[in-house]
């Protein structure tokens, strides 16, 4: 059984948080550049250029891409032949939270987490706890993915259950309406993560997980690849444009993840992500 030191996980998560806040992933930058080539509205094109400029300043001068450096969501894929050497009753989750706290402190990132949602809302001062999703996979590696998503777009995410007998048109209309309702508030151009199937909580998780796919990579299932393309075309025909100020570029991508579900339901979750789509992975 392979061992990984507690401290190795702490330092890896710290680096991922800092890199995520400052470096727009290459696929997101490419998607914005591609959109700029196609954008017919001059004001919209100007905003897209400013987003590219913003990414350059963020990386070059170590200023976070966005002041909302997010709630740290951490996806862990742990090989079944690897374990974390912690001690003192500590766990992998403690290492992740220690890494998030270190990253937000040493990276000069904003601490945006309050300890209690309703009573007092006192800031924890460390941007912890992170939201952690853990799964066991084959092998002896540990994959850590940090997504530091802002709340302006997260607030616009929605869930709905449909009758199992509906057609795809009804679902498309609902998803397009969710994007329309999010509008300018969610910082378009957006990335739309969609979770289809599973149950109440799984569809929401899938909609977040969907965001982690490379934006230039099509869905591996042909039916869903076509659905993603149709959704993207419908969303961009809304004309909301960058920042909701008009234009052809309302979304950069629609990404679908699916799971088997109950005969009586068809859960659909939409996770709205802004253009400042920050995530970073490492494999230990």
């Amino acid at each position: 059984m392979r061992q990984i030191e507690f401290e190795k996980i702490v330092s890896t998560v710290e680096s991922l948080c800092i890199a995520s806040a400052h470096e727009l992933p290459a696929d997101v930058l490419t998607a914005i550049e591609d959109a700029l080539q196609k954008e017919s509205n001059p004001a919209a094109a100007k905003i897209l250029k400013q987003l590219i400029e913003n990414a350059g300043i963020a990386k070059g001068e170590k200023i976070p891409l966005c002041q909302d450096t997010g709630l740290a969501v951490v996806f862990i894929e742990q090989g079944c032949e690897v374990f974390v050497k912690a001690g003192n009753g500590k766990t992998l989750f403690d290492a992740i939270n220690a890494g998030v706290a270190a990253g937000y402190k040493n990276g000069f990132l904003r601490k945006s987490i309050v300890a209690d949602p309703l009573n007092n809302r006192k800031n924890t001062g460390s941007n912890t706890p992170a939201v952690i999703h853990h799964e066991i996979v084959p092998g002896d590696k540990l994959k850590i993915t940090v997504i530091t998503k802002g709340t302006g777009c997260e607030n616009k995410s929605r869930f709905e259950t449909f009758n199992p007998t509906v057609g795809k048109e009804e679902i498309i209309e609902w998803i397009v309406d969710v994007v329309k309702q999010a509008g300018a508030d969610a910082c378009p151009p957006l990335i739309v993560g969609i979770g289809l199937g599973g149950n109440f909580e799984l569809s929401c998780l899938l909609s977040k997980k969907a965001l982690l796919r490379n934006l230039q990579q099509k869905n591996s299932d042909r039916f869903y690849a076509e659905l993603e393309a149709e959704l993207l075309a419908r969303i961009n025909s809304l004309g909301l444009g960058p920042q909701g100020l008009g234009g052809d570029t309302t979304a950069l991508a629609c990404l679908i993840e699916t799971a088997p579900c109950h005969i009586g339901s068809l859960p659909v979750a939409v996770n709205i992500e802004c253009h400042s789509h920050r995530h970073k992975s490492a494999v230990i």
Binding site: L51, N54, I57, K111, G125
Partner: peptide, 26 residues
């Protein structure tokens, strides 16, 4: 202002001073 362009917009800020509610942090 452009949401998600915080690095770019920060270049237009010459000084910043907390004048109230310091306990609120950011």
């Amino acid at each position: 202002a452009i949401g998600g362009a915080g690095a770019l917009l920060s270049k237009h800020i010459l000084s910043a001073e907390v004048i109230a509610y310091e306990d609120l942090g950011t």
